[in-house]
């Protein structure tokens, strides 16, 4: 993710990638050979005094708290972007929010699905009350990343388990669409040897009566690419949205469908997916214009709150 963000940032006007920090000696040696004019360091504290406008944290999730703390306490930069999730627990998230309150300026967490044209369209339709009074939703996040793995690996652990790696995106979308939610019941399972978190099912409720169900797995067959989606039911009909399309079916009417093609999906530079460019462009413009962004740390901490609740309800 670090390289992807560095590449996109390098295409934006007014942005220059100055310095890379990595603990791995081999990676550092390689980066020095590959990137002309970019300083490569082995220790975060060596970023002090470089007068950096922005730092991107793209390390494994368990390190987000300590890395961010070091950035703020050494005044490395006041503007910080952290790849999702904000931290590996709600406690750590709260501490990061406090640090940002004291020492930070503009901050953002990489919940890039908010920048996908299909989910934006869904959000617009919900804001227009297209479905009437919301009744329930089903949300999923699936991939085949660990399908067929016989035992859990360091890689799966460094990704923070399936809830943080995949589930976090769809939890963030649900919070964005519906507002604050509380976990009612949860099941969290390991499908492979080694006790990793591979599969989660949980139910949430909102104070106004809205109910939702989540299903998250990275051992799902036929999900070559990770896929995220929701089916939302309201008094006036239902909506189905995923990475590729939005379908709206109102009572007694024909359904309407929008693909990415219909929703102006072009960006300044396409790498990985259009949403990465939109996310980085939005963050940088916000820093330049000194305006707050969403999802900022406080908003993103709510995802960690839900994940902690799921684990607690599941007895983990």
């Amino acid at each position: 993710m670090g390289l992807l963000h560095a590449a996109i940032l390098n295409t934006l006007p007014n942005v220059e990638v100055n310095v890379l920090c990595d603990k791995g000696a081999l990676i550092r040696k390689f980066c020095k050979r590959v990137f002309d004019g970019v300083r490569v360091v082995d220790d975060l504290e060596k970023l002090s005094g470089l007068d950096l406008d922005v730092v991107y944290v793209t390390t494994p999730i368990p390190s987000h708290f300590i890395v961010t703390k070091t950035i703020y306490s050494n005044a490395i930069s006041r503007n910080v972007f952290i790849e999702k999730t904000l931290a590996s627990s709600y406690d750590e998230s709260k501490k990061i929010c406090e640090l940002a309150q004291s020492f930070g300026a503009i901050n953002m967490v990489g919940y890039m699905k908010r920048f996908a044209v299909t989910f934006r369209k869904a959000k617009d339709l919900l804001d227009q009350d297209a479905l009437g009074e919301l009744v329930s939703f089903d949300a999923y996040a699936y991939s085949s990343d660990f399908l067929g793995s016989e035992k859990s690996s360091k890689a799966s652990a460094s990704r923070g388990g399936v809830l943080r790696d995949l589930g976090a995106h769809v939890v963030d979308l649900a919070l964005w669409f519906f507002g604050d939610l509380e976990v009612d019941s949860a099941k969290l399972e390991s499908l492979v040897e080694g006790g990793s978190e591979d599969f989660a099912n949980f139910r949430v409720k909102k104070s106004d009566g809205l109910e939702g169900w989540f299903s998250v797995s990275w051992c799902k067959e036929n999900y070559r690419l990770p896929e995220f989606g929701l089916v939302i039911k309201g008094s006036e009909g239902f909506m189905r949205v995923n990475d590729d399309e939005v379908e709206l079916k109102l009572n007694d009417e024909k359904s309407s469908r929008w693909y990415r093609h219909d929703l102006n999906d072009n960006v300044g530079f396409l790498l990985g997916a259009p949403e990465y460019f939109r996310e980085d462009d939005y963050f940088i413009k916000s820093v330049l214009e000194n305006r707050n962004v969403e999802p900022g740390f406080h908003t993103a901490s709510k995802v960690d709150y839900i994940i902690d609740q799921v684990k607690s309800r599941a007895g983990k």
């Binding site: 590449a7 295409t11 590959v34 530079f269 790498l271 990985g272």
Partner: peptide, 12 residues
């Protein structure tokens, strides 16, 4: 594309 476009972006 991922190599081409990353190389373009990073001026390699």
């Amino acid at each position: 594309e991922i190599i081409t476009d990353m190389g373009l972006a990073l001026n390699l």
